[in-house]
Write a protein that binds this DNA or RNA. Structure first.
Length: 301
RNA sequence: GGGGGGGUAGCGAAGUGGCUAAACGCGGUUGACUGUAAAUCAAUUCUCUCCGAGUUCGGCGGUUCGAAUCCGUCCCCCCCCA
């Protein structure tokens, strides 16, 4: 089994900076596990690492598509797995770093996605309850797991069922096991500290031209249909364009959305993975590196 | 000084005698998550010894079987005139 070091954590927790230090200390290369940093044009709002900051460490998973394109877990999974192969083949340590828990899980575990999304129907004329009722017929098991109001999920399960094997059957065939020997660490700041980091980072993003970036790419309404506009730091500007909220009000919205996102991320990491919760500090960093080193030295049977 | 409007749970805001511990939104908390995941969705949010009970709707006092809702009085805020 190939070894993969994973650095997870909420936004603004310092994953990027830590990843560079670890990559250098452990002879690793980095795979970004972030759903928004795949967009080439979007840099400041996504807090993408700069060329200088990379310090020569090779990065995968950045700038993969244009911001007007769609991207999904399946794309990520494919990319991440092949990057892991490639890096391992060079006898370097793959370091997967990112905050998109679902992406991390899907690439690390034996999740299977088919090639079928394109033909999904949206059933616009059906209500949530009608859709749910249909799903109940085709895939009753999925219905137990998905709330009727969660239209996106109901729709997806329904579309899968309509094409043959149901989502439940598909998942039942999986073993829910990791494909790699994973050492995962989650950045664990006290809430107040994280909140402060979030605000400070947002200040920096404004300083580095977040507003310009948004105006450059999303000033026209049709551009706001793009999937990339769903990202925090961007979608909040809709109120600036359409309702003429002040820049300050937008900033407040972004802070709140970011805090809420961080909370969701933490919930995911807490419940979906068995990770090493790392409280960032210089001393602790030495300890983690030792722990990782020990894990690296251990041969897998 | 005169006229008008207003003070409701962390915030905004409904409610104008019983069906109201009080709609709704925001924020908070907890959680779900197998193709939009920085997305989507759910539960919960006065207090407690939480199946039940106790305190709330600026303060105090009153009317009433019963008041956030009516009356008196006091305090505070906003707008207009002086």
């Amino acid at each position: 089994m190939k070894k993969v070091l994973v650095i997870a954590g909420p936004t603004a927790s310092g994953k990027t900076a830590l990843s560079i230090r670890l990559a250098k200390a452990l002879n690793g290369e980095i795979i970004s596990g972030d759903s928004q940093q795949v967009y080439r044009e979007l840099n400041v709002g996504t807090a993408k690492i700069t060329e200088e900051a990379k310090q020569g460490v090779p990065h995968y998973g950045l700038d993969l598509v244009s911001y007007d394109q769609a991207y999904s877990v399946k794309d990520f999974q494919t990319m991440a797995r092949s990057a892991i192969e490639e890096i391992s083949d060079k006898h370097k340590l793959p370091i997967l770093v990112g905050g998109t828990g679902f992406y991390l899980k899907a690439s690390l575990y034996d999740y299977v996605f088919e090639d079928e999304m394109a033909q999904d129907e949206t059933f616009d004329e059906l209500s949530n309850d009608e859709l749910y009722a249909q799903l109940k017929n085709l895939d009753p098991k999925a219905t137990e797991k998905i709330h009727p109001n969660n239209r996106k999920r109901v729709l997806r399960a329904l579309n899968i069922a309509l094409k043959g094997e149901t989502k439940s059957d598909r998942e039942a065939k999986q073993k829910h096991e990791a494909l790699y020997d994973v050492f995962m660490l989650v950045m664990d700041h006290p809430k107040a500290v994280l909140d402060q980091r979030i605000e400070e980072r947002l200040d920096r993003q404004f300083m580095y031209g977040l507003k310009d970036e948004v105006e450059r790419y999303f000033s026209r309404a049709e551009q706001r249909q793009y999937q990339s506009f769903q990202a925090i730091g961007y979608k909040e500007w809709k109120a600036y364009f359409d309702e003429h909220l002040s820049v300050d009000e937008i900033k407040q919205k972004i802070v709140i959305a970011t805090r809420q996102y961080a909370k969701r991320q933490l919930t995911w990491f807490r419940h979906q993975f068995n990770a090493y919760w790392y409280k960032p500090s210089p001393e602790n960093e030495k300890l983690v590196i030792q722990a990782i080193q020990a894990w690296l030295d251990k041969e897998i049977l």
